[in-house]
């Protein structure tokens, strides 16, 4: 299935969970927040959140700013 992560298309196996995607992206080293189709998904729900075809994800972190 195809999803969009931070504006880029990505192909994932069917029935992938959000936690699996984050594992694949190797994001363990810094805090991230995830929005799935405009809704914030809390960390404790990452493992139980199933992704589906056409989902749009935003993965954000803290960067320098004033």
């Amino acid at each position: 299935m195809e999803i969009v992560v931070n504006g880029e298309k990505r192909t994932l196996p069917e029935n992938s969970s959000l936690a699996l995607l984050l594992l694949e992206l190797a994001l363990a080293k810094q805090p991230v927040a995830v929005e799935l189709n405009g809704q914030v998904i809390k960390k404790q729900n990452h493992a139980t959140t199933q992704l589906s075809e056409g989902d749009t994800l935003e993965i954000v972190t803290f960067v320098g700013g004033g």
Partner: peptide
């Protein structure tokens, strides 16, 4: 200190992150 919230750079390693 102030920080901004932005899309994560998926290509960066995270080793050198702001925090």
């Amino acid at each position: 200190v102030t920080v901004a919230v932005r899309r994560l750079d998926l290509k960066a390693s995270g080793e050198n992150a702001l925090l």
